[in-house]
Design a protein around this nucleic acid. Structure first.
Length: 945
RNA sequence: GCCUCGGUGGCGGAAUUGGUAGACGCGCUGGAUUCAAAAUCCAGUGAUAGCAAUAUCGUGUGGGUUCGAUUCCCACCCGAGGUACCA
């Protein structure tokens, strides 16, 4: 009987769906296991073979855990708010909800083909109002919370208000805006309602703030750094400037230390922890105040605050540098310098932050004309601006110590500023000296002769005495901007009163659903797309959304026009899966009491400082407020690597419509263009007829051929529709089956690494499944047959060797080597002629997490009526593997020359004697006496000499 | 620039603690079967030299530690990912 994968796979997929085999129930007396893969954004292109890599790995682990007796929850859903659907809406006018629905249907069809053991009854979609109800709900709780640094957790705003009423804000130790004024209880009581609200906004965990953004006036929108190339928008090439905008922010900085400390408690990849650690960027140092001198007689003086990790080098300060965007730049600029400063500020507004960070070679800056007073020496310190200082970074100002910091050094050299040396016995002729450990301070008054630590403490003490500084811990982490000027995202449950202050709509009015709009573009006045809605006002009396023309700022108010960012919906989805239909809470106590947290989370490392940091922040917040039982939601995390595609390249002779075959280019000027890989045959030859039909630009093109064919170039790069190099899983399922695809994706290489895709290799794993099938069909006319007599010792050795390897490899997430060992197992059992149930039954279970359809089919043929999914994993028994002898590699000077079979119970001396007695040893030595013989019993013999 | 990961045959990769480099698979070559093909099976396959036994070289490059290095250390080259509004 043939291995008919089409029939087998569709039969078992139907069986699983009809029997709800993978439905996870709670409570349950079994131990729980929650396996989660990052849910996809359902793009219009559908799944390509790169997507399922992590899903397959997660499914294998989930199925393995079921065999181990766990009650497994493995859900799937869609991160369905996002830019591509909106972009498509702008181009075609089709509502993003329709695009999204179509795409989700397509994804579901493709996912169903691959045999995942998902509990589909728990599916979530972030764009579903039933779901974003709870995203909005979390936002509301953040709005109504503040961070108490004394209790070190978030609390409801009522405790803050009581504290204000009792003793003003000086007694409160809270995370708040830097510009929060001090007030007493009496002053608080005397404030108007609006004034109080304005103060509270400085404490809320989500608040309004002016933030720098990449503004593209032409497109009327904010762009990601990614979308800005050389100061212009990637789309359209319009100018982009840095601009301040009032936006919602999340006070994630309140959690900086806890997010850092929490990393020690979770089993996540070290590089990912490194990324978060660096992102949070804790550094210890001092904040120091430099007072500016009046720019003109009788003018004002300003406090310039800087943060430094090297307070010990304060006597080496020879100038200050401010970010061009620094608030005080206009005030500190003298008339003589104004023109130059303004030109420089404008020029740097056109450079992206990334550009400014990456470019260390070109040094630029301008003197403001102003001076500050050195806090300890009282000397005049010139104030410069330079774009190597970033506005959003620390205070946007640095005290420049050219002898101790390379960027300051380069800046000083370039502008011929003094470089005082404050290090004992160190030359700074060539470069700055930044070695903290080797530092001995000189030319620095009372700290001469001290090391880094001692000097830093002494300086901090001196600054504190003068009231011009203090020891402090600084975090690089910035509060997270939470507004997007987009349509296709969660609306904020917020309206604005006559004073422009934000108010929440009542909790029981959630969800606040996205309004319909005519156009998905920003409005002509530059407002976000929701500004196009005619019904986007809040009636505070009827508690409902109403028409804009009813806005009177008394009972009807304008609603927020921004929407939430992509990461909002993914920050609590893992908890929602536990209880997706709960209409009273994000997650019910019983559900989260049982499921607790995610045991295994698989996803890409590109989410390290986005989703994976924000979701930890929300979870900490939820924990503080008592809604979830654990601080960290994912105990273990694995990053899956990227699948790379092999693109096909054609070469267009510059300025013509003539294409040169790869071998004919020589030194001619050509442009490289990507063409669809499906137009290429196995010999890298292009199907010209198909190409002409593929895109109009090729219809009349000329082609210069080699040996009658057009040969394309190949380029390995990220698999993406953009490069026309995607390989679709549907065709593969059709030709080889889902089990083959699953095995092959795992067989390609280590899960965490990126690796190129090559469909040709699929036949290898497909052949393996055919061989496996044959092993169970050795009866007359290849009919199914297993024998009930005892398997041979050899059979058992092969089986148990494989059990051990498969178990160790799954637990170590080494899925590629499991597939190899299953292949070796089948090869060995085939040549041994094994037909025994003792061996073939456990083998089916070993295979089942990887190739579940064929395993179910064989399980049924073996006489079982229930699903193999819950069969107990075979027990490894050491006794089958005990060896009597070892084939020792015999090396000479580290090079293996021959092997020698010796009993394992020989002593070191006996082994040496046997080896020396061997004729081949004497031949290798050729009469020489060995200097040394190294014997490692059970491993190796090495003869030196 | 900075942080992180990676570099092993024609290709994907293996080598678990410093101990036989190249498991397993693809591809390729030769053979069996077949009228022929598909499918299947058998043998070979890092490079160079040699009829062969065998020898020399060989894990990005250059150095080092060691009886022994793909594995540890130092310096460098190349590629990929992230770098705060792509998801």
């Amino acid at each position: 009987m043939q291995y008919n994968f089409r029939e087998i796979e569709s039969r078992w997929q139907r069986f699983w769906a009809e029997n709800q085999t993978f439905r996870a129930e709670h409570p349950n007396e079994k131990p729980k296991f929650y396996a989660l893969t990052m849910f996809p954004y359902p793009s219009g292109a559908g799944l390509h073979v790169g997507h399922p890599l992590g899903y397959i790995a997660c499914d294998i682990y989930a199925r393995y855990k079921r065999h181990q007796g766990f009650n497994v929850l493995q859900p799937m859903g869609y991160d369905s708010f996002g830019l591509p659907a909106e972009q498509y809406a702008i181009q075609t006018g089709q509502h993003p909800a329709i695009t999204t629905r179509t795409n989700i249907a397509r994804y579901r069809e493709q996912l169903d083909q691959l045999g995942f053991s998902y509990d589909w009854s728990r599916q979530v979609r972030t764009s579903d109002p039933e779901y974003y109800h709870w995203t909005q709900w979390v936002f509301m709780q953040l709005f109504d919370s503040w961070y108490n640094r004394d209790s070190d957790k978030a609390e409801h705003l009522t405790t803050l208000i009581s504290a204000f009423e009792a003793g003003g804000n000086t007694a409160v130790n809270a995370a708040c805006d830097e510009d929060t004024p001090a007030f007493t209880a009496a002053e608080w009581q005397a404030m108007s309602e609006a004034e109080q609200q304005r103060i509270l906004l400085k404490y809320r965990l989500t608040y309004l703030a002016d933030t720098e953004v990449n503004w593209c006036p032409e497109l009327g929108t904010v762009l990601a750094n990614d979308e800005v190339v050389n100061g212009v928008s990637e789309r359209g090439g319009y100018p982009v400037i840095r601009k301040k905008m009032t936006q919602w922010s999340m006070r994630i900085t309140a959690y900086a230390q806890r997010l850092l400390d929490g990393l020690d408690t979770i089993d996540w990849p070290q590089p990912l922890k490194d990324a978060q650690t660096n992102w949070i960027g804790r550094s210890k140092g001092a904040s120091v105040t430099f007072r500016s001198k009046p720019v003109k007689p009788g003018g004002e003086r300003y406090d310039l605050e800087v943060f430094t990790t090297r307070p010990d080098t304060i006597y080496g300060v020879s100038f200050m540098t401010l970010a061009p965007e620094h608030d005080l730049v206009p005030e500190l600029t003298t008339e003589a310098q104004r023109e130059a400063v303004e030109a420089y500020v404008e020029a740097s507004a056109r450079r992206s932050e990334r550009e400014r960070m990456a470019d260390v070679k070109s040094i630029s800056g301008v003197f403001t004309g102003a001076y500050a007073e050195h806090p300890l020496t009282g000397e005049d310190i010139p104030i410069w601006i330079g774009d190597y200082v970033l506005a959003g970074y620390g205070t946007g100002a640095v005290m420049a110590v050219p002898c101790g910091d390379q960027r300051d050094y380069d800046f000083a050299k370039h502008f011929d500023l003094p470089i005082p040396n404050i290090f004992e016995g160190v030359s700074i002729e060539e470069e700055a000296y930044a070695d903290k450990a080797g530092t001995v301070i000189a030319n620095s008054d009372f700290i001469n002769g001290m090391g880094y630590k001692e000097a830093s403490n002494a300086v901090i003490e001196a600054l504190e005495a003068k009231g011009l500084g203090k020891g402090t811990i600084n975090y690089r982490l910035r509060d997270a901007v939470f507004s997007r000027q987009r349509y296709w995202g969660e609306p904020f449950p917020v309206y604005y009163d006559a004073e422009g202050l934000p108010h929440l709509i009542p909790e029981d009015c959630l969800p606040l659903e996205l309004p319909e709009v005519e156009k998905y573009l920003p409005t002509e006045t530059g407002e976000p797309p929701l500004g196009n809605a005619t019904h986007w006002a809040w009636d505070a009396e009827t508690l409902s959304v109403t028409a804009n023309d009813r806005i009177d700022h008394k009972t009807v108010f304008p609603l927020e026009l921004n929407t939430m960012p992509g990461w909002a919906g993914s920050s609590q989805y893992f908890n929602r899966y536990m209880d997706p239909d709960n209409s009273a809470a994000l997650v019910g106590d019983q559900a989260i009491g049982y499921w607790q947290d995610v045991d295994l989370y698989i996803g890409g490392s590109e989410h390290a400082t986005g989703h994976l940091l924000y979701s930890r922040f929300w979870q900490y917040f939820m924990y503080d407020r008592g809604w979830v039982p654990v601080e960290e939601y994912a105990k273990k995390l694995i990053n899956q690597g990227m699948i790379l595609g092999t693109s096909a390249v054609v070469y267009r002779k510059s300025g013509t419509n003539t294409y040169l075959s790869k071998g004919l280019i020589g030194d001619q000027q050509v442009e490289e263009l990507r063409v669809d890989v499906n137009l290429i045959n196995a010999s890298d030859e292009l199907d010209l007829e198909a190409l002409r039909k593929w895109q109009p630009q090729y219809a009349d093109a000329e082609f210069e051929l080699e040996d009658g064919a057009y040969v394309v170039g190949r380029e390995v790069e990220k698999m993406s529709k953009r490069w026309y190099n995607v390989v679709n899983p549907d065709q593969i399922c059709e030709e080889y089956g889902a089990d083959s695809l699953r095995l092959y994706e795992m067989f390609l290489g280590p899960l965490e690494q990126s690796k190129p895709w090559n469909t040709a290799g699929l036949s290898g794993v497909h052949n393996f499944l055919k061989k496996l099938w044959k092993l169970y069909h050795q009866g007359a006319d290849r009919s199914f047959e297993v024998l009930d007599d005892k398997a041979s010792a050899e059979n058992m050795k092969t089986l148990h060797k494989t059990i051990k390897k498969v178990q160790d490899d799954i637990e170590g997430f080494s899925f590629n080597t499991t597939v190899s060992s299953l292949m070796i197992c089948v090869n060995e059992l085939t040549s041994q002629g094994c037909r025994q149930r003792d061996v073939l039954e456990p083998l089916a279970i070993l295979l089942s997490p990887y190739a579940p359809h064929i395993a179910e089919e064989l399980w049924k043929k073996l006489g079982h009526t229930d699903s193999i999914a819950f069969a107990a994993f075979p027990q490894f028994e050491e006794k089958y593997l005990v060896e009597q002898s070892k084939e020792y590699p015999i090396s000479f000077n580290g090079k293996m020359r021959f092997t020698l079979e010796l009993p394992l119970d020989l002593s070191r001396e006996e082994i040496e004697a046997q080896v020396m007695a061997d004729a081949r040893t004497q031949k290798q030595l050729d009469g020489r006496t060995p200097k040394k013989v190294i014997v490692v019993p059970g491993k190796i013999v090495n003869i030196v000499g």
